[in-house]
Design a protein around this nucleic acid. Structure first.
Lengths: 100, 100
DNA sequence: TAACAATATCGTAATATCTAAATATAGTGA
DNA sequence: TCACTATATTTAGATATTACGATATTGTTA
């Protein structure tokens, strides 16, 4: 976007919104905030879609800094890593507390 | 998306996020909330993009119920019409009050 | 009603996204 | 090291989105 009124901040926020603007990714992110599935196999089962598809959505979320993965033994455990996204999900889905 | 874990609500919210997840549309929506340009010509000037492009983005926002247009003489004055979107924009851009 | 101004819609080419199978990688435990 | 499990990457076809010129529509005013 080559436009002085659309600045870097706006571009970045738009990108963030676009990335969570997909049913599978929004489901992943909402579950993460809501204390749900944290590793890929669980997400895959819960979402009923192929593993590679889940992984690609996770890659997209990760490259935007929305989630972070940490290896735990055999698995990779994901967590939300972006405050804007947390705020958005909380306000959209009326989630009160991170249950931990 | 044919998946029992991804329900109607999730689909709708994802669609909403996707629609505001575009720099031009996010700019329009943020300006509307922030008391800025409300008719198409002003937006067009401010955004430096062709009128038909602005109109198409407005159509998308409108068909998702994010904005509503009201005719005022020669022009159509738009306003935000979706509470989720208002909340999101406010929290992302630290807008305190609708100035009116 | 004619000319004009503001906005919307259409057509379409370029680009981006999505999905999923196939394949690769990397950690774990025997 | 070997087999296994969990996850990531690659590839490709299908689909969706985007931008914008051309054109249409609708309201206004003379």
């Amino acid at each position: 976007m080559n436009n002085e009124y659309i600045d870097r901040e706006l571009e970045e926020k738009a990108e963030l919104l676009k990335i969570i603007g997909h049913p599978v990714r929004l489901c992943i992110v909402r579950n993460l905030l809501d204390g749900g599935n944290r590793n890929v196999s669980e997400m895959q089962e819960c979402l009923c879609i192929p593993q590679s598809t889940v992984s690609q959505h996770l890659a997209k979320l990760k490259s935007a800094g929305i989630i972070e993965g940490q290896r735990n033994k055999n698995q990779i455990v994901y967590a939300l890593a972006n405050e804007d996204v947390k705020k958005i999900i909380k306000s959209m889905f009326d989630i009160k507390e991170e249950d931990k």
